[in-house]
Nucleic acid binder design. Structure first.
Length: 928
RNA sequence: GCCGGUGUGGCGAAAUGGCAGACGCACAGGACUUAAAAUCCUGGGACCGUAAAAAGUCGUGUCGGUUCGAGUCCGACCACCGGCACCA
């Protein structure tokens, strides 16, 4: 940011504290203090460290998400979200008032219900991630491997009534808009993965003998002819509606024969009940660990395959997730690994409907040991006589076998190929003579299209896009968070006993303060702590307040906007201000640096020329890839749709700084004892050395281990810079004075220092200028590309050269200090001041404080060399180097190269085929 | 399993397809010093040479390709790190 400011940009470089939420609260509980107290202490400590590091933050813009003046607006934005719906026509969020209510909703209660079901913030009873240890529910994004992200406690699935935000409505835009922003490839990929878009179709299977329909989602409609059974998720209510009371007469023993808890179910209904109990007893963790063996039960119902007319059995199995797609699948064991594993358990048919390409067949037949291939051929009456007839014969035989009995193959084929075996010759086919479609011979892409079109024309299915992303579980049963500005009341018009309905508080009621509680700890059953404050919760008219709180991410979803206008009491951000900083035409550089009280000091930032909308540069770690960065984009889009912000995306350029590891190459952690405390480093080497080392270690994005020797190295460099300026004798005096006289002010101490007598008010010589401008060029370019490490090495080169100068022109040193200033501001500023006292400059622009001095421009003309060294190669191998005039012609160069004594032995007696000349770069002689 | 990223001296790392190892750390030798620290100077990829040099050979995870020329581009693989993981 110092660099951009020196270039004349208006740089917004703020700092703030995201201090609500689990980490802060967990810390408070551990230390037995109130979260407000620990939060304040932590902020004070971080602030001290950060200030001593010399970041040029603008503290007038400081924000704190736990400050009522701040969370007032977090609650305000929540109300905006609550009072909006997603219009699929316009693909935008719109005020709830514009939602058209269909005429069939007549009563007020029905209308209200309809509206509430369309809000972007809604209440739903859904299986959620409940963490007993933390006493709260968590978002999907906060659960890792069945454990909580914070603390690593077990998480179980449990149906609960919770607030949700309709982020799924924005899935498409969140995905598409990634293309226009400058983020790292891997980070975009992570978000894409999390959004999980997949294209496919929904297909309706009628349930035989019932009016119900099983709707499935598939990405492979082309394999519909191979769908030999149906699976629905255990949680599905549909299962209850279609389950049979008796096994039908033709149910095979293999299908009914599942025992659970040692009980053999006597009816499909009993099987379903048993299986549900069994599935619910498994935690998420167990579900994934036990993924080897698939389980499930047949529920007796039969469904009709819409293309083949075949009757297929319906199963319930927990390998199908209730929360993805339609919660039901068509199983194609021949072409899906999971179905392939499940089918043999119940001896379900496996029918090939896609012919794999030759290389797959060949590889599969050859790579598998044993003689399964020969045996399988014998079984179906084919002869194995390809051995001496080569590859084509083998392929022909393999193809025949695959079409007849793909189950004999060791693995399923899940890729793309040519459709076969349609229409199927299933025994049920005659009952449905309207099924006339065939896709045999088509490629997978063609077959998908043809079958989807056909389904659509018959009203049996539809092309669909599905996302893995689920709605954002937004409520927490904790104390330390923003209270919801929502109250619950009984509907006056509704019949008694109807559940209470929710209603927004008016904006004038904000901020809604949380109650003061002495016992703020979570309760085991999921009762929110706020419910203990009866006076706060119960309102005079009989309605009650919502007692859940918002998650940690709420405050950080929009803090970058508050920085723009941190003190504004009228609005979350002023319109003009928002436009000035965030708008596309903004001529400023803007920098964001996230900070939360629970994270270490890890941010570092530099502004960027703003020709782009939104935040120009956002430096942060990857740990927020699918949390903060996704949530913030979502909120921003809602605010954009409602007209409160001027860009569709909040963060234009995002750089992931790499983690700094401990000296042992492991992640820093207290338990490993490899934590480096910035206070210690700064105490020993100073803030400048600390800053410089962090930047010199390597590229910004890389993960790199800490090395204390490295700090000593850059410390030595700073010492060399000092000696470049300061007279050695006075340096000793200064040190003595500093050590003894505690009473002396910094100014008095500084006066003891004499600048080196070699510094003179003379103009720089040509070689000196060349050294200086080479340095300016490199540092400028490297800062633009955020390559701090090479910029520093360029300055080291300069100092190594300049320290040997007999006369040191003050002007050159002055320029160097401006280059050094972004990296080591304290030292640079000190030397600058001293230099200006002893060698006042006539240039008024440079008499000001260094922090506001103008960045030097390099002069390319000064860098031109008279003589250059040219490498000479023979057949691409370096054989000699020649120093020639920079303007030497090609002919001269060629002659010089051929005349070289070192070259001669390699070309004598050989035919020169050609000579490659790269002007000013190299000569390569190619010989036979 | 799938998706990303990264592989270069003892270490952190540089290198628009054109002199691999800039810069720094650690190390070794020297100067200054009674001595040490600090500072300054010198050296350094491996091999083979040699009194010492020079010359030469090899060398950027492995194997192959494109090119006059590859750390850099292409293909296959290996290792490590990160993310996702029954997503139909």
């Amino acid at each position: 940011s110092r660099y951009r400011r020196a270039q004349g940009f208006n740089v917004l470089h703020p700092m703030g504290w995201d201090a609500f939420g689990l980490p802060a609260e967990q810390y408070a509980i551990k230390t037995g203090q109130h979260p407000r107290k620990t939060t304040e202490e932590n902020i004070a400590n971080f602030k001290r460290q950060i200030k001593s590091l010399g970041f040029s933050y603008d503290w007038s813009r400081e924000v704190d998400t736990t400050d009522p003046k701040y969370f007032k607006w977090t609650q305000w934005i929540f109300l905006k979200i609550y009072n909006s719906w997603f219009n699929p026509e316009t693909n935008k969020a719109e005020p709830i008032e514009t939602l058209p209510i269909p005429s069939e909703f007549k009563t007020e209660a029905d209308k209200r219900n309809f509206r509430d079901n369309h809000r972007l913030a809604y209440v739903a009873e859904a299986p959620v991630n409940w963490c007993e240890e933390l006493g709260t529910v968590l978002a999907n994004e906060e659960v890792i491997d069945g454990k909580s992200e914070v603390g690593g406690f077990p998480v179980v699935r449990k149906p609960m009534r919770q607030w949700m935000l309709r982020i799924t409505a924005f899935a498409e835009r969140l995905l598409n808009d990634l293309e226009g922003i400058d983020w790292s490839h891997s980070l975009k990929e992570m978000q894409r993965n999390w959004l999980g878009r997949s294209e496919g179709a929904i297909v309706d299977f009628k349930v035989a003998g019932k009016s119900e329909v099983i709707r499935v989602f598939t990405t492979r409609p082309d394999t519909l002819f191979g769908a030999t059974y149906i699976v629905i998720a255990p949680e599905s209510e549909l299962a209850d509606r279609i389950v049979e009371d008796k096994w039908s007469f033709d149910t095979s023993p293999a299908v009914k024969g599942t025992t659970l808890f040692g009980i053999e179910p006597k009816s499909p209904r009993e099987a379903l009940q048993l299986y549900r109990t069994y599935a619910a007893s498994k935690s998420d963790l167990e579900r994934t660990e036990l993924s080897k063996k698939k389980t499930g039960v047949c529920i007796g119902a039969r469904a009709i395959n819409p293309v083949s007319g075949e009757l297929v059995s319906v199963f319930v199995a927990d390998y199908v997730l209730a929360t993805y797609g339609t919660g039901a699948i068509m199983a194609v064991p021949a072409h899906d690994e999971r179905d392939w594993e499940f089918a043999p358990e119940f001896r379900l048919p496996c029918r090939a409907v896609v012919m794999p390409p030759d290389d797959w067949l060949s590889k599969t037949v050859r790579s598998q040991s044993g003689n399964w291939f020969t045996e399988a051929l014998t079984q179906v009456g084919l002869t194995n006589n390809f051995e001496n007839r080569g590859e084509p014969a083998l392929l022909e035989t393999a193809r025949k076998l695959y079409a007849i009995n793909c189950a004999a193959f060791p693995v399923p084929f899940v890729g793309e190929g040519k459709s076969i075996n349609s229409p199927s010759n299933s025994p049920d086919h005659h009952r449905h003579e309207q099924y006339e479609i065939s896709i045999s011979g088509l490629s997978t892409v063609e077959a998908k299209k043809k079958i989807t079109d056909w389904l659509e024309s018959k009203g049996l299915g539809k092309k669909t896009v599905n996302y893995k992303l689920r709605d954002w579980l937004f409520s927490r049963q904790r104390y330390w968070g923003e209270p919801f500005p929502i109250i619950w009341k009984r509907d006056a018009n509704g019949p008694s006993g109807q559940p209470p309905c929710h209603e927004a508080l008016p904006e004038s009621a904000l901020p809604l303060m949380p109650p003061e509680l002495t016992d703020y700890k979570p309760a085991p059953g999921g009762e929110p702590p706020l419910a203990r404050a009866k006076d706060w919760m119960n309102l005079p008219d009989g309605s009650v307040r919502e007692t859940n709180t918002m998650p940690q991410w709420a405050g950080s979803c929009w803090y970058y906007l508050r920085y723009l206008d941190a003190q504004n009491p009228q609005s979350f951000v002023g319109n003009d201000v928002e436009n000035y900083w965030m708008g596309a035409e903004s001529p400023k550089a803007k920098v964001q640096s996230p900070k939360s009280a629970d994270l270490g000091p890890e941010t570092l930032d530099i502004g960027l020329k703003s020709t782009t909308p939104g935040v120009d540069l956002y430096v942060g770690g990857t740990e927020h890839a699918v949390l903060h960065l996704l949530y913030a984009r979502f909120w921003h889009k809602v605010l954009f749709d409602l007209g409160y912000v001027s860009t569709p995306e909040p963060f234009f350029k995002l750089v992931n700084q790499g983690l700094i590891l401990g000296e042992d190459g492991q992640k820093m952690s207290k338990s490993r004892g490899n934590v480096v405390n910035p206070d210690d480093v700064m105490g020993e080497y100073g803030a400048d050395a600390f800053r410089l080392y962090e930047m010199f270690m390597g590229p910004l994005e890389m993960v790199k281990p800490w090395n204390t020797h490295g700090v000593a190295g850059v410390y030595k460099f700073l010492g060399r810079v000092w000696r470049l300026f300061v007279d050695e004798k006075s340096e000793t005096e200064f040190e003595q004075a500093e050590a003894t006289a505690e009473t002396q002010s910094r100014g008095e101490l500084l006066e003891k220092i004499q600048l080196s007598a070699a510094i003179k008010d003379v103009s720089a010589s040509a070689p000196q200028l060349k050294t200086l401008h080479a340095c300016i060029k490199k540092v400028t370019e490297d800062l633009d590309g955020l390559r701090f490490n090479t910029a520093i090495s360029a300055m080291m080169v300069f100092v190594n050269d300049a320290i040997a100068w007999e006369t040191k022109p003050a002007s050159a040193l002055r320029d160097f200090l401006i280059l050094l200033q972004p990296f080591a501001p304290h030292l640079a500023e000190e030397l600058w001041e001293k230099l200006n006292i002893e060698h006042p400059t006539s240039n008024t622009e440079q008499r000001i404080a260094l922090a506001y001095a103008n960045w030097p421009k390099f002069d390319a003309a000064l860098l031109i060399e008279n003589e250059i060294e040219i490498p000479i190669q023979v057949n691409g191998k370096l054989r000699d180097r020649l120093v020639v005039a920079a303007d030497a012609t090609q002919e001269q160069l060629e002659a010089a190269a051929l005349a070289s004594d070192k070259i001669k032995p390699f070309i004598d007696g050989k035919e020169i085929k050609k000579i490659v000349m790269v002007p000013k770069k190299l000569v390569n002689i190619v010989v036979a």
